[in-house]
Design a binder for these strands. Structure first.
Length: 271
DNA sequence: ATGGTCGGCAACCGA
């Protein structure tokens, strides 16, 4: 069977619930992972998702900012949230699919929202950048993010780092801009390598080609200037490396009315 | 070289 998983930094799920509904009705992924829900769990628009067929929900939200959520048409065997850097920030939720979803073997899905890191790329001067680097180090060291041989796992989310040269509009001009500094890129790639994760988006779009999932709100004309970054990612364990049959970046979502600055990324996995 | 825009929540902070 095919499993379709979408990831989208929605920048307030309550403000943009109609955009989410439109996307779900058009794309019908089995699972949608959201970041920056900016919504406490008791205020999450769960009924709206249920009406769209997404009756299974795993939440890790808080008031005002951050927050992640997984909504699914398929039931979970288990859900989990993890905290990083000894903070209460809501930046991770994971679910495991299994027999209840019709899978012969379990599959774990992690949804991440990595700290943005502020403006100054110096951990001495900027505690937010220090937090981002520590978060990436902890991702690298976390045993739960090192799938065992043969295990089926997917890691998606807004990782807030565009690690490759063609993940940004200008590698040279972005070298000192938070999200593409060498230290962040190296730490993100180290976390990826430590878990033996496969970058599924770059399996489908060669690294020579520009690929973006985010465009700043500050551009006068985001589409014309096209100064994008690939901040959102889909990683799969080696067991799934050859089983991702499609990757779709819904670029047009950036042009919808009152959009998020991120667009959805959808992966189809032959499980 | 600089400033440009959002969202939450009610001042600015975080992105």
């Amino acid at each position: 069977m095919s499993l379709t998983v979408s990831t989208w930094n929605i920048n307030s799920v309550r403000l943009r619930i109609e955009l989410v509904a439109d996307f779900l009705q058009a794309t019908r992924p089995d699972v949608l992972c959201l970041q920056e829900t900016k919504c406490p769990n008791d205020a999450f628009p769960q009924k709206r998702f249920a009406a769209l067929g997404y009756t299974h929900v795993a939440l890790n939200g808080q008031k005002g900012w951050h927050g992640v959520a997984i909504v699914s048409r398929l039931p979970f065997e288990a859900t989990e949230t993890r905290s990083f850097c000894d903070k209460t920030d809501c930046r991770h939720v994971s679910v495991t699919f299994g027999a209840k979803a019709g899978l012969a073997a379990p599959l774990t899905l992690h949804d991440f929202y990595v700290p943005a890191g502020g403006d100054v790329p110096d951990p001495e001067a900027n505690p937010k950048f220090a937090h981002k680097l520590a978060f990436l180090d902890e991702m690298r060291e976390t045993a739960a993010l090192h799938p065992a041989d043969g295990a089926r796992a997917v890691l998606v989310g807004d990782l807030n780092v565009a690690p490759l040269e063609n993940d940004v509009w200008s590698h040279k001009q972005m070298l000192k801009v938070v999200s593409h500094t060498p230290v962040e890129c190296q730490k993100l790639l180290a976390a990826q390598a430590a878990g033996r994760w496969v970058d599924a988006m770059r399996r489908h779009v060669p690294p020579e080609k520009k690929l973006y999932t985010w465009w700043s709100y500050r551009a006068a004309d985001w589409a014309a200037s096209n100064r994008g970054r690939r901040l959102d990612h889909v990683w799969v364990s080696p067991a799934l490396g050859d089983l991702v049959s499609s990757i779709t970046v819904t670029r047009e979502a950036r042009g919808w009315t009152q959009p998020s600055d991120h667009v959805p990324v959808t992966a189809t996995i032959e499980v």
